[in-house]
């Protein structure tokens, strides 16, 4: 029986999770929410995490009904993410690892999402679409690495959605992506937008500039509503993601597709992916918002896999890195 505690705080969500042999015992989380029209900045986000991390830690231990002495290994997000928030969380992880005299593991954020997605859904060897505010990647496992077959060449799809929410001054509570999703459900007219797929890769910055530049005049013309713009943006970016994912599935002969990351919560994206998977005779796997959105348990789950396969992190390497490619990690826990 192995008990793992995971610390996650790479963006505006702070979470600490406790996992025992693949079962989530606790997973409390808090979100730093900025006013409409504003994004979260690293320094303020770090201050938010510093103010809340010890309360969340206590809550995780209480809800799991676990004592520090029962924990086998401490895991934290090594990267990628925002520098100051990452360090704020890592410092606490390092401190409790020493206090409790436990080994420590630095986990890649993206692999946290993948391993939690695989565990929760039971997907065996899926093609993975990892979509969030900071990442957009199409990934397949091969020869001890999570290989990146396709990705955004500029901004993440979630970043595109979040920034557009700022243009419309939508609320950031519970998340701008969620609020765009709700608006889109009431959209009726499709606005033509740039569709920028580049082979296996995608690009969103031109699309964002296009819709940002025209939002005011499109709305002012009376021909379109905010709901129509949200609907159109979703239809366009999600179709791009489905296309690149399908291309990867075809290339790998994959029969499973797994969506992870915060944008993976979006039901419309899941619907579109489900249609594609069905047409290909494949199965779609997706998690709900407890695990789609950044959380501590996903770091604990990936850390559990790493620990059981013999990996720990040397103290000198318990740093954080803002850039940490998914394919840099040797996947010692898979065949």
């Amino acid at each position: 029986m192995t008990v793992v505690i995971g610390f996650e705080g790479s963006a505006n969500k702070l979470g600490i999770g406790i996992v025992r042999d693949g079962k989530v015992l606790s997973n409390p989380r808090v979100t730093y929410i900025t006013p409409p029209g504003e994004g979260f900045l690293p320094r303020d986000t770090a201050k938010h995490h510093q103010a809340h991390v010890l309360d969340v830690l206590e809550k995780a231990l209480l809800e799991a009904n676990v004592k520090p002495s029962e924990i086998d290994v401490v895991c934290y997000t090594k990267g990628p993410g925002m520098g100051a928030p990452l360090v704020s969380v890592a410092v606490v992880a390092r401190t409790v690892a020493q206090l409790w005299n436990k080994p420590i593991i630095g986990v890649n954020h993206c692999i946290g999402h993948i391993e939690m997605g695989r565990t929760i859904t039971g997907a065996e060897n899926p093609t993975v679409l990892y979509v969030s505010g900071g990442n957009t990647q199409v990934i397949a496992y091969s020869q001890k690495r999570y290989r990146i077959f396709g990705e955004t060449v500029d901004i993440a799809v979630g970043n595109c959605l979040d920034r557009f929410a700022r243009v419309l001054k939508l609320s950031n509570d519970p998340s701008p992506g969620y609020n765009i999703e709700q608006m889109a459900k009431r959209g009726k007219i499709l606005v033509p937008l740039p569709y920028v797929v580049k082979g296996m890769d995608v690009s969103f910055s031109g699309l964002l500039s296009y819709i940002e530049d025209r939002a005011e005049s499109l709305l002012g013309s009376g021909q379109y509503t905010k709901e129509d713009l949200c609907f159109s943006l979703q239809e366009t970016v999600f179709a791009m993601l489905v296309e690149t994912t399908e291309r990867a599935m075809a290339h790998c002969g994959s029969k499973e597709v797994l969506i992870v990351g915060g944008v993976g919560c979006n039901v419309r994206l899941q619907d579109m992916m489900e249609k594609m998977a069905k047409e290909r005779g494949a199965t779609l796997f997706a998690t709900d918002e407890r695990f789609c959105i950044d959380n501590g348990a996903m770091i604990a789950q990936a850390g559990l896999e790493m620990y059981l396969s013999g990996q720990t992190t040397k103290w000198e390497e318990t740093t954080c890195t803002q850039r940490f490619r998914t394919d840099e990690v040797e996947v010692t826990w898979r065949d």
């Binding site: 830690l57 520090p68 002495s69 100051a84 360090v87 410092v91 020493q98 206090l99 409790w100």
Partner: peptide, 24 residues
Amino acid sequence: NSFFDLLILVIKTLERFGPPVDSK
């Protein structure tokens, strides 16, 4: 300033989740 923020965080962690267990 940044260092002090992290130092204070370490001190609070020590206060709240300490004392350190004896090494094996």
